[in-house]
Design a protein around this nucleic acid. Sequence first.
DNA 1: GCCCTTGTTTTGAACGTTTCGAGCAGGATG
DNA 2: CATCCTGCTCGAAACGTTCAAAACAAGGGC
Lengths: 333, 333
Amino acid sequence: MTTIYDVARRSGVSPATVSRVLSGRRNVDPELSEKVRAAVAELGYRPNGVARNLRKASTNLWAVVISDIENPFFTSLVRGLEDVAQTEGYHVVLCNSDEDPAKEAAYASAVLTEQMAGVVVSPTSTAEGVLQLAEAKTPMVLIDRRVDGVEADTVLVDNEHGAAEGVKHLIDGGYERIACITGPRRVSTAMDRLAGYRSALRAAGIPYDKDLVRHADFREAGGFAAMESLLELPEPPEALFVSNNLMTVGALECLAKRGLRAPDDIALVGFDDIPWADLVVPSLTTVAQPTYELGRTAGLLLKDRIAAPGRPPSTVTLRTELHVRATSAPKQK
Amino acid sequence: MTTIYDVARRSGVSPATVSRVLSGRRNVDPELSEKVRAAVAELGYRPNGVARNLRKASTNLWAVVISDIENPFFTSLVRGLEDVAQTEGYHVVLCNSDEDPAKEAAYASAVLTEQMAGVVVSPTSTAEGVLQLAEAKTPMVLIDRRVDGVEADTVLVDNEHGAAEGVKHLIDGGYERIACITGPRRVSTAMDRLAGYRSALRAAGIPYDKDLVRHADFREAGGFAAMESLLELPEPPEALFVSNNLMTVGALECLAKRGLRAPDDIALVGFDDIPWADLVVPSLTTVAQPTYELGRTAGLLLKDRIAAPGRPPSTVTLRTELHVRATSAPKQK
DNA sequence: GCCCTTGTTTTGAACGTTTCGAGCAGGATG
DNA sequence: CATCCTGCTCGAAACGTTCAAAACAAGGGC
């Protein structure tokens, strides 16, 4: 391996000067600089990033800790983050936590020992990894969910407002008996979306009926089961609001299996888009989240945090957008 | 930051001994070992991964260079890879090349300067990055596509056989005038799938008509345009084989826009699944690739390559699986 | 009692960079 | 002419680990 010493010898200067030439500092004689560049080219020298990292006590890695890259929500988010990372000179390390606090903690530990420059994390319910990172003062951006007791930059979506908008849309379509499938009680997004559901009902003067609410696990199977349980009610709902994409898919599968159709048998609005929602027939009405933008924003916040670690943390809340499609067509009287 | 020296001082041994205790080597007195562990716990010592990497001249990073994480094919592949990486003690760095040889080359360069332990890459058409890595003898696994002149471990799918099976399925359904939308000429997978299309026709005694073949860009827009061009033929095809998932989506969108339906107006088989292909109505017949398994296999090959760099490269070919759904229903006479 | 062997620990030298302080010209100033 | 700057360059010390080689202790054979 050729080192900075080889280049120094070849160009007749000291390693220190080579270093300054390569790191683009000023205060170096143009003539020497030229010699150094020539030597670099001749020798095919490539700086050793690891050595630089050791010396500088930091790497150019960002970790992104999410529950599962196969969830389209995170896929697009990660893409947004990676695009920012690329322009800022960082690389993104992908970490699937599968909502498992132990895995999250293991990744947090890796972030610390590998001296990564920063982390973007969508916290699991217990969030011990996040606490560990917060304590170590690692630059960190929380995404999608808040964590009690942790002060950190956060990127959220206006869950309550988005959910309310989706439910209001159903109400406007003439539906009154509207059910809700949401996520675990410990997850802030699940509760925020439920709150939106309730506030839309309240605004319309429809009484809240807790028998119409199900808490599932944000996964396909959970949505399926919750849908089944709702359909088995003595008086099934005439419309449904589902609070994430995978559970919506599960609910749709349940309907398909039973030969039921939206919106004729039950009207449907889902939170969070799924790819090609237009191709599903009947096409799916969703409260779309700006997932790419979420990732991008997180990247920008992380960059700023690294540049100025002392600054007080900020929270950015992005707006959702209601995509009206076929499953929420107005009630036929 | 607490270092191995601090631990050594605290436990009354030399740094070397601490190192041996922590790296789990034998030849260390259990009593000392215990003391060291105690000191580690008391001080909250955490080894510095960067320093270790420098000394060992290698990191625990794998890069995965793909065209776009938002393509479900790669999403699932990356997930398979990451699962192997995790059990083997590596981390995965995500690199979206967007089919841009310059970006690919930039990532290849980063792999070298950051001393990453290995790379899994789905090569772009010109593959200069791959050549650079091959020259540097970086452990590398090629995925999905072959590269001329590069000897490396490779994981492929039996494209020709899979395509032939899909097309034969259409022929068996009574269709004869079958079109094909495939990818760029320089990409091996595109040509392999086209070859499968041709061989299925040949086996059935159907003459090959090059007017029924379109080369597009493997993207949604390309599939859309190719579909339009096929529909404008004086005598449009009665069935269609599309050689990747995004172009299939594009083709479906084109049909939807024109108010045409599969399989009544045109029967359809796509190569590569899309998520929730069952939910699309009519549900989509596909030649499914074992995408997760592709990533997993690549990970295992990479692990082996790192363990034994000298071994001759091997190629693994995985089988596709025909998922018969609604869009390929037999022709109604 | 001496020497060799075996098993464990320590010393000290890397690994390849960056950066601090010192050194050294050469010009400006008093 | 001495002194002070200014602008560059260089030497050397980190950064925190691992590992080869040396040192040491203890046990066994002759």
